[in-house]
């Protein structure tokens, strides 16, 4: 038996106690704080679900054409969405799509600045790296419990859980991309008197863009992987269908919802990848 160095029971109690205290004292203010995100998500969800299905397909096809400049791909993406509708999962698909868009958008607004800071300050990087490891490896259920206690069941904790799980690759790849910028090129910009901001916006970020786009791609993929878990804490959508399938032992229901998730994943992946390729190709060919 491993000797008991200190009472883990006490430790657990302390942690439980402080979370309880946090919940009783601040749960309301946390909820108020997250209200804007909830509003945004609900608005987007209403928009996607309220709009006629063909208009959504048209918009997505247009977006994927804008990203790839490829009609064939654009048509493929439209077919994928049509497929989700054909499975009878249009409504749930739109709920999941809205959740993904908001989670990805928030991940980008959080992840890229953190990545920039990590590339700029070595100390910050040293602190962040283990934190990112924790975020990526800690089982999501562990932080789902306090998140649900603080924000209640529903969409907001789902977004938070998704971001915690999905943002690390974007942060890492932003940091890596900036660090990989040719030091000769950066030196040239310094030699011409560029200040930190001009170096970052004019040289480092544009040259890191292929890596950052790969990071965004990874983030969307990981966010989709969280769909089922998110539905356990009240985010409805395709994940909920899977859950119902599991609960009722309806293999068919689970499989169809699973296929719809795959369809969404392919859609996100191809669109972000082709956008990334086009942007990095723009560095070489005429943009």
């Amino acid at each position: 038996m491993f000797p008991e160095l200190f009472s883990t029971r006490e430790l657990r109690k302390t942690i439980d106690g402080s979370v309880d205290w946090l919940v009783t004292e601040y749960a309301d203010s946390f909820e108020a704080l997250t209200q804007p995100f909830l509003t945004l998500l609900i608005w987007l969800e209403q928009l996607l679900r309220g709009a006629p299905w063909w208009s959504v397909i048209l918009v997505i096809a247009g977006l994927s054409f804008a990203a790839s400049r490829n009609w064939l791909m654009s048509a493929g993406m439209a077919t994928l969405l049509f497929f989700i509708g054909a499975l009878g999962l249009w409504d749930q698909g739109m709920q999941t799509l809205a959740l993904m868009l908001v989670a990805t958008g928030l991940s980008v607004t959080i992840g890229i600045p953190i990545g920039i800071l990590m590339a700029s300050y070595d100390r910050f990087r040293k602190v962040m790296l283990p934190l990112l490891d924790v975020m990526q490896t800690m089982p999501s259920f562990v932080y789902l419990i306090p998140v649900v206690m603080l924000f209640g069941l529903g969409k907001v904790p789902a977004i938070f859980a998704t971001i915690i799980y999905a943002v690390p690759p974007l942060i890492r790849l932003t940091d890596l991309g900036i660090r990989l910028v040719d030091p000769d090129v950066l030196e040239a910009s310094r030699a011409f008197g560029a200040n930190r901001r001009q170096q970052m916006l004019g040289v480092q970020l544009p040259l890191a863009l292929p890596n950052i786009m790969a990071g965004i791609n990874q983030t969307t993929m990981m966010a989709l992987a969280m769909v089922v878990v998110a539905s356990m804490i009240g985010a409805r959508g395709l994940g909920q269908e899977v859950l119902i399938g599991i609960n009722r032992l309806e293999v068919g229901r689970g499989l169809l919802a699973g296929l719809a998730i795959v369809a969404l994943a392919i859609l996100f992946d191809r669109v972000t990848q082709s956008l990334g390729q086009r942007l990095s190709a723009g560095q070489k060919d005429a943009s």
């Binding site: 030699a191 008197g193 544009p206 040259l207």
Partner: peptide, 21 residues
Amino acid sequence: LEDFRRHKISMVFQRFGLFPH
């Protein structure tokens, strides 16, 4: 120093140091 580099002195590099983008 930035002003000095911007107006008074400039540099040509061995491996060109051009901006690929």
